[in-house]
Design a binder for these strands. Structure first.
Lengths: 258, 258
DNA sequence: CCTTACTTCGTACAGTGTACAACGTACTGC
DNA sequence: GCAGTACGTTGTACACTGTACGAAGTAAGG
């Protein structure tokens, strides 16, 4: 199974996200834990051991309860993922950057999101078909839209530009997470992997058939000391994203450069 | 479990990808099917019912064999995913575009990849920590690198630029796939979902607290007839990507435009 | 022919999310 | 104070996953 959000009654999920208790007096025993405890434990578990380690059984053990107890706090696992995401969104820094240039603000926005994914790599893996419209995401959205103040973009374009930046950072984080988990899970280091592949690869990669691929692949591999360096891909991509926005906003490519 | 590639002996996987039979005479009964049959059935299954439907049991039934029989063709499911990916890469069109501008070639490259993900939406979900270095991927890489001929980019930058474009298309395909599966799996249409969320959202979305978010969100929602339109996001993003490459390659923003 | 390597497949196991029912608890209405 | 009831907690159970293991049958080598 893949990790997906949503699924249940949207109104119920939304009440949970905004921590709006059900109306009516509560009979029966009081809950021994809080929703925040559950969510915080789940995030800690995911940070430490990855999203696959967040099972209802493991989470139950982490909070000292039977697995099924969790279902009195949360309708199901999909909603738990929504809550986890919204919680880490709420943690993002949101300093006032109104004195800076838009370019500096957007670069900071990208950096903050990158650091979010560095702290919580699992977040890039979660498939959010419908986003968790909680306080964390709203605060994030509000703050990040402000990065485009004074750019002259209309509202629709502003939203599209933000989505473009965020999707880029998320894709980079996902690639980085995949590269890392390939290293960790597979019991083969990058070097061993290449060494194991090299003999047959040399035999099968005809330079007449793949001249450009062989040459460029070798150059790129040498430049990165690996088949793929997520950090370099991010730096390169971010520069391109900022260039693209400069064209969109200032109508030329060299604004803000020496 | 998420869907991941790789894992086993890289050399063995590589032999499978390039269809290099093990050396030595084969004793015992001959295999009743071919590796290509297995892979083709798996792709058909994934196309029709999604990646989650590709289980060893279902695939066994599709090829008319017991589930465990598959393990004589493929070491495990991770390797099967590698083979599926390489197979669809091999299907991509690779016409000679040497007469066109680089911008037209890169746009075509993006379109071809977008259509690949449209035909095989599951491909965007697969986590390829280490890429399947088979004939399909090599042919794809060779052809796509050629899109940057005559751009003056050095080899390392050429690889980075291609990665940038491909990552963008993949991210867009992933978002589109997530949005679609949210629609299909959740039993709530987009309209029902918004209708269910609207009352509480109206109550909780204070316009003083989230002025920009509320305004921009409403404008974007109206412009897209939905919370999120993957097609519009793709078109917007592709234009930005091409602008960014124009800056990189031609040093200005307006090359190739009227 | 016997041996050996190989394909096929039934069974089994550890793991997943969660439905269901039993049990105890604390509040509501009297 | 007491019955009724809604709710928290939990053990068990189910369908499902990938795949390890071993038995049975088949074709080739010596």
């Amino acid at each position: 199974m893949s990790h997906r959000t949503g699924g249940g009654d949207p109104a119920h999920t939304l009440r949970l996200l905004w921590r709006q208790p059900d109306a009516g007096a509560r009979r029966g025993p009081r809950q021994g834990r809080s929703l925040d405890d559950i969510v915080a434990s789940a995030i800690a578990l995911a940070d430490a051991e990855g999203l696959d380690a967040v099972t209802m059984r493991a989470l139950g053990q982490a909070v000292g309860a039977a697995p099924m107890t969790l279902y009195t706090y949360v309708p199901g696992k999909a909603e738990l993922l929504d809550l986890m995401l919204d919680a880490i969104y709420a943690e993002l820094p949101r300093p006032d950057r109104s004195g800076e240039s838009w370019r500096s603000r957007v670069a900071a926005l990208a950096r903050d999101n990158r650091e979010l994914f560095a702290a919580h790599p699992w977040a890039a893996e979660v498939a959010t078909g419908r986003p968790p419209l909680g306080p964390g995401l709203m605060a994030k959205y509000e703050h990040e839209l402000r990065a485009f103040d004074d750019t002259g973009l209309d509202d629709v374009t502003r939203d599209a530009a933000l989505t473009f930046v965020l999707d880029f950072v998320r894709a980079a984080a996902r690639s980085a997470a995949e590269a890392r988990s390939a290293r960790q899970d597979s019991a083969w280091t990058d070097e061993q992997w290449w060494a194991a592949n090299a003999p047959l690869l040399a035999q099968v990669l005809d330079e007449r058939r793949y001249p450009t691929a062989v040459r460029v692949g070798a150059a790129a591999g040498a430049a990165q000391n690996a088949a793929y360096d997520p950090d370099q891909a991010y730096e390169f991509g971010l520069a391109r994203v900022l260039d693209a926005l400069t064209v969109l906003i200032d109508g030329r490519a060299d604004a803000g450069r020496p």
